[in-house]
Structure formats: C-alpha cells, structure tokens
Nucleic acid binder design. Structure first.
Length: 274
DNA sequence: AGTGCGGCCTGTCCGC
DNA sequence: TGCGGACAGGCCGCAC
C-alpha cells in the first residue's frame, strides 16, 4: 500500500529513466480504474516529452508541455519500467511507451488507483486543490497542526490520515508517528497540547524521512520501480506488530479498530487524552 | 461545517 | 482440496 515515502521512492526511481523521453505509444488494456482513464489521454501525450515528475501527497504528477498527467496508485498500484513489448501480466492496465524502447507500466490489482489529466496548473485540479499541507514542507509545523487539532473532536489518528489536513499519510505512518510521539491514537485531537503537536510533527517528519531513505515499506503489493523491495518494514515499531512486545518498554502492543482501520499502539507508552 | 460511513476492488488467508 | 467469508485499505461522495 503505497503511502508518501513509497510514492517518493517510485518518483525518484523512474525520473532519471524517463525524464525528457518522448511518448510514442500508449496502451490502455483496462480503462476502468477508480475513475475511468480519459479517452483522449493517448492523443494528449503521444509525441510529447516528459519534462519532469513531481509529487503532491500520494499523487504523482507527470509534466508535459501541454499539461499534466495525474496518477494515484490507490492501495495496490505499482509502476515499473519494462522493455517495450514485454508480455503483460495480469492487471497490467496501462503502458506508456517511449521512443527509447522502454515503457512505464501501471499495474493495479484492486483498481483503486486512477490516471487523470489536467490541462493546466494541477494544484487547481479538483483532486488536488483540497489537499492539506505537505508533511515534509516547512508549512507543516506545530502551529499548523495545532490550529487544526484544537478545533476538532476526532481521534488524532483519523486527523493524521485526513488528506485535507495532511497529504500523504496513511495507516502505516500514522501508527508509527503516534507511537514515536507517545500519543494514543484515540486521543481527542483538541486535547493535544501545542508541545504535543510539535512533537507529533517532528515524529511524522522523522518517520517519513527515514522511510524514504530506506526505499519505502514493502508489504503485500508494494515494490519499488526496479522491482526490488524497500526495507523500512524492518524498522516498523508498531504497524503489523500487534500482540508483540513494544520495542521501548516490552509491554504487549494492542490492536484496535479506528475508523475501520487497524490500529496498533503500546498501551503503556501511548496515553489517551479525552 | 465537521464528522462518519458506504462503496469501489481483488488477493490472501482462515476455518470448515 | 475446495469453497465461502472476512479482511485489507485510500479516497470520494453522500448523509446526518
């Protein structure tokens, strides 16, 4: 399940391979994703050069002279670079092929991902313009988070995972960051102090940065663009470790359900605030 | 306005 | 061995 560090890793992996490459063919085997792939996409990008790739939250943005291709990998999406003509596997829905003989292949078993087009400034696109702060930007700091938490009665974990508040944090990194900051996932957002918000912001930046450095977390479907695995999963402190001893205090980690998401925390290190 | 939940999907794992 | 059911999960859009 790619979250921000996985998307960043994919971006860094494919950028040097396809930057300034010219599209000469687009194959859409299945256009039914979360929303259908625009019918005129092929026409838009054929013979166009990829100028750059950027990321906003979990969205990848491919920059062309004539506009921007927006891509979301959903939960199970992946991108690989293959030789043009390599036989497609199950769920290889889209190939974007280049004049150098390679192509960018989009695979997504669960089809929660999407590929969309924006003629102009993608930050104005309806899927992007409501996104909250980039967690690794300076805009995302203790003041920002406190301004949002102090008015909300939601559990803090749901707030971290709300892309309108912070872009790109999913279940894995929300669990990890809350553990690092010693904050119980169920804590009512407005009960957090300013200094707890600052601590949480630091924890989020730390865990995301470390995960990017490790090439992301590989579990289930996620792999890097070159097919190798990230290795951040070896460093996870709570996610996927319910029932095992806390790495700090040895208490048994608890698993609960919050907003229909599995939540793991240490009942001793992370205190609830109501 | 803020919050919560249903629906979209398929692969994997578990119990019978 | 085979089968059904539960579960996993991001994000939009709707309902309260």
């Amino acid at each position: 399940m790619p979250e921000l560090p996985e998307i960043e890793t994919i971006k860094n992996g494919i950028l040097p391979l396809i930057k300034n490459n010219t599209v000469n063919k687009v194959i859409v085997r299945n256009q039914k994703l979360r929303s259908p792939i625009p019918r005129d996409l092929v026409k838009k990008i054929k013979w166009q050069k990829i100028k750059n790739i950027s990321r906003r939250g979990k969205y990848l943005i491919f920059h062309f002279k004539c506009g921007f291709l927006l891509m979301h990998l959903g939960m199970s999406g992946s991108l690989v670079i293959v030789k043009d003509g390599a036989s497609p596997k199950k769920h290889d829905h889209v190939d974007i092929c280049f004049t150098d003989g390679y192509c960018l292949r989009f695979n997504d078993p669960r089809r929660f991902g999407c590929i969309l087009w924006s003629d102009n400034n993608p930050s104005q696109h309806k899927l992007l313009h409501n996104l909250g702060a980039e967690p690794l930007s300076e805009e995302f700091n203790g003041d920002y988070l406190f301004a949002r938490t102090c008015k909300s009665v939601r559990p803090i974990k749901l707030m971290l995972m709300d892309s309108k508040v912070i872009a790109g944090i999913g279940n894995i990194y929300a669990n990890e960051a809350l553990f690092k900051a010693s904050i119980h996932p169920q804590s009512v957002a407005k009960c957090l102090t300013k200094s707890q918000c600052e601590k949480l912001v630091r924890a989020i930046k730390q865990v995301l940065t470390a995960a990017i450095r490790a090439g992301g977390t590989s579990c289930r479907d996620y792999k890097r663009a070159d097919g190798t695995q990230g290795y951040f999963q070896q460093k996870l402190l709570v996610y996927g470790r319910g029932g095992k001893p806390c790495r700090k205090c040895k208490a048994i980690l608890k698993t609960s359900c919050l907003g229909q998401r599995s939540t793991v925390f240490c009942p001793r290190c992370q205190k609830t605030k109501k």
